[in-house]
Amino acid sequence: MALLEVKDLTKAFGGVTAIADLHFKVPENKVYSVIGPNGAGKTTLFNMLSGIYHPDEGSIRFLDQEIIGKEPHAVAEMGLSRTFQNLQMFFNMTVLDNVLVGCHLRTHSGLFSAAFRLPSVIREERVARQWAEEALAFCGLEEYSRQHADALPYGVLKRIEIARALAVQPKLLLMDEPAAGLNDTETLEMRSLIRRISESGITVLLVEHNMGLVMQVSDRILVLDYGSRLAEGTPEEIQNNPQVIEAYLGGEVQYAV
């Protein structure tokens, strides 16, 4: 069964069509990548999938439910989480608190019980803290737990965003350029992290410019060009697709596989 099904999706900003008549299916428990040159509409697509933009036409079905028209927090509640291309950290908080925000949907104490710090709140805090620490450990970030987010290097922040998204316990994780700005070592770490996320049963939808990484971790790849679907298939099929080579890769195909 497809976890996510996109049909006839169209979005225009003024006169510019960002996404045109797009359709694709993301199968469960796979790593599905979306590639395409800058301005191909990848981030626009992500913003529609997460409820930030509303498309002009089409449908997005996640777990057989329509996403369109829902607010991002309602989409998150359905089990979809994401990271951002330009970091959206809570820089005013510690790393642990950042990830604890990710536990928001798994905890329930309200303002009143929190204000009086009822025993139920203390219990819930303890459990949430454990969850957050697990998410941090999964991303190899235990040592940063108590530090302030505003003092940490970029590569670490990228992983904190992932830990925060994982703390939501999503069924589908959208990752917007997780390797952008990372050095070679960090990119290798990111590759193994994406694999481990996938192995833990979370479906990953990935947007990434690093072709080596995309070819290594993806089960299927969708190629976008000017907001339309150019090709779709396994990494091998994509690498040998003459249209893709022509339009996107410019004829020179050299992968660091």
Binding site: S50, G51, I52, E71, P72, H73, A76, E77, S81, R82, F84, Q88, M89, F90, F91, N92, M93, D97, L100, V101, G102, C103, H104, L105, T107, S109, G110, L111, A114, V121, E124, E125, A128, R164, A165, V168
Partner: peptide, 20 residues
Amino acid sequence: RSGRALRALHGSEVAAEMMG
């Protein structure tokens, strides 16, 4: 939890929404 939601709002509204 509520206080963290407040601070998250200050840090990044869009990320706060994405955390539910």
